[in-house]
């Protein structure tokens, strides 16, 4: 079953209280492939592996259906540095609309 982008966003917001969140569906709206960019205080003092484990745990149910997921999990401090170097980052919409959902979805076996 396709995973809704809003469902992914809501769960992450609820559990990680992010100061910036961007969830992109790169499966043409099918809900099978996501890029996640998340900035949360809760990542402080955690290794990359621990941060991603946390996200995986939150999306445990969804992961059964999601075929591909990329994660960028950063702390507010890292985020400030990133924005200082590239102010455009923070200008991007926090919630990206799924790309054209009228496009025909291809079903891949991953």
């Amino acid at each position: 079953m396709p995973v809704l982008q809003s469902q992914v966003e809501n769960k992450l917001r609820e559990r990680l209280d992010p100061i910036f969140l961007k969830v992109e569906d790169f499966s043409d709206g099918c809900g099978f492939k996501y890029n996640i960019f998340i900035v949360s205080k809760q990542f402080e003092g955690q290794s990359l592996l621990q941060r991603q484990r946390l996200v995986n745990e939150i999306l445990k149910e969804e992961m059964n259906d999601i075929h591909a997921l990329t994660q960028k999990c950063v702390t507010p401090e890292q985020w400030e540095k990133m924005v200082a170097e590239n102010p455009d980052l923070a200008k991007q919409d926090q919630v990206q609309k799924p790309s054209d959902s009228t496009k025909k979805c291809e079903f891949h076996q991953h």
């Binding site: 990359l48 592996l49 991603q52 484990r53 995986n56 445990k60 992961m63 591909a68 997921l69 990329t70 994660q71 960028k72």
Partner: peptide
């Protein structure tokens, strides 16, 4: 490894992470 996706990378028998983590490192 209690990790839901492939690829998975191990150094000296210890789980390091997947593609995103290796790329970030």
């Amino acid at each position: 490894s209690n990790w839901p996706t492939i690829p998975q990378v191990f150094f000296k028998g210890e789980f390091i992470g997947g593609c995103d983590i290796l790329l970030e490192m």
